[in-house]
Amino acid sequence: MQKYRIAGVIFKANFIYALSARLMQKYQYFGKDEAEFTAEFNLEEIELASKDFPKMPLPYVENTLIFKKFCDFVLNNKNGLIFHSSAIAVEGKAYLFAAPSGTGKSTHTALWRELFGVKAVMINDDKPLIRLEDGEFYVYGTPWNGKHGLDTDCRVKIQAICHLQRGEDNEIEPIDAKEMLPVILGQTLRPTGVEQMDKLLALTEQLLGKVGKFRLKCNTDISAAKLSYSAMKGEN
């Protein structure tokens, strides 16, 4: 069975459909380290799960099951949480923009790429993974990368997280942990077990205490990217 390494976590996976194999190809792992879990679903399990996603084709249901299995494992064992956001790195620091789908987070990080050119690295445009390691929070690329297929298999220390909203003009302000909490909880995969929920809440609380937190109201002019970068980059 093929091994994969996503966000530093090695696991085995077997697929019925070619879709997952294709999406995860870049994350194949050929090293000697042992897999920590196995993700494999039979047709019966996939069809059963498809009742929760009525319009989703089965190959995507299979991919969703693998995604959820992975997220459960990292939350339980690796201090990791998936965060629906667009994550970009500049000069070794990562910046995450979160908002409900369709708000414009991908558009905003596209402005950053326009502004910084090759200095900007797209970590993941849709579902990067955040992990706490040795007291620091890092963001990793994952194959669940959104409709533009933008992701890099890398790990970057998180500088700041930004709640993005649309605006006529561009404005950015720091916000406190209390204001950012619903943004994180609203854009992650919520576990259903009490113990897992407590893990998620504890991890989120630590994250909020450690990284920069901002709210950006922005339009699609390049000046929006200049403003958000200068506010979020912090002291050098």
């Binding site: 942990a177 209390k178 950012m180 909490l181 909880l185 919520r190 809440l201 989120t204 609380e205």
Partner: peptide
């Protein structure tokens, strides 16, 4: 959590 009371 984070100095606030939340229900989930």
């Amino acid at each position: 959590v984070a100095d606030s009371f939340v229900v989930v």
